[in-house]
Simulated scan of single mutants.
Amino acid sequence: MRIYLAVALGGLVGTGLRLAWDLTLPHADDEFPLSTLIVNLVGALLLGWLVGGLWTWPKIPSWIRAGVGSGMLGSFTTMSAVMAALALLTSAGEAWLAALYLAVSVVGGLGLAAVGLRVGSLIAHRPMPDSITDAGQTL
């Protein structure tokens, strides 16, 4: 029950943070969705850092990992927002901007997730794992 509550509360926090970014950096449908890009890149970095570092510590309870990972960061970063931005840009005749946005989102997200994993591993004083073998249990 604690895990469900942690995910729900984390989701509230993440959604609020996401809304704050969208209100801080608004954009029209045919403009580059900078707020969504920033949110997703920062989220990839943070989740990589957590998975590679803090969550390797045995004393971090699973409900905290679930609340912060799936709850807060899951609601802060959303694939649906990326897809909506791509559809809006394309329908507004900005296919080149949509392609750029998708490329930066994917390459930047993967790159920052890798940086987060590396930094997290260094902070935890452990070598970076070659693979994650816990079948998603840290999320």
Rank of each mutant, 00 (worst) to 15 (best):
R18M: 07
T138M: 12
S121L: 05
K59E: 15
P33L: 04
W57L: 12
L45S: 07
T77A: 13
G116T: 10
A124R: 15
A85V: 07
A44S: 15
G93V: 03
A135S: 08
L117Y: 10
V107E: 10
G10I: 01
L100V: 03
I60E: 01
A124H: 13
G116M: 10
G11H: 02
I64V: 15
L41H: 07
Y4V: 05
G43V: 10
R65W: 02
L17G: 15
Y4E: 04
G93H: 06
P127M: 06
L97C: 00
L50P: 07
E31L: 01
M72W: 04
S105D: 10
D134N: 14
L100F: 09
L110M: 12
P127E: 14
V104W: 07
L50Y: 09
G93L: 02
W21A: 14
T90A: 15
E94S: 04
A20F: 12
F32C: 05
A81E: 05
L86H: 02
L110K: 01
V104Y: 09
I123K: 00
A95K: 04
A95W: 06
G136V: 08
L5G: 07
A113C: 13
L139A: 15
G16Q: 05
G52Y: 12
I132S: 06
G11T: 02
L45G: 05
R118D: 08
T78Q: 06
A28G: 12
L88P: 02
L117S: 04
S91V: 00
T90R: 04
G10E: 03
I64G: 10
V7F: 11
V13M: 05
L19C: 02
L19H: 09
M1A: 13
S70C: 12
V106L: 15
L46W: 06
L34T: 06
L89Q: 05
G71N: 09
A66K: 13
T90G: 08
G93P: 01
L122C: 04
L19R: 00
T56G: 09
W63M: 06
L19F: 05
T36Q: 09
R2Y: 11
V13I: 14
L117V: 14
S75K: 01
S70D: 07
V106A: 15
Y4G: 07
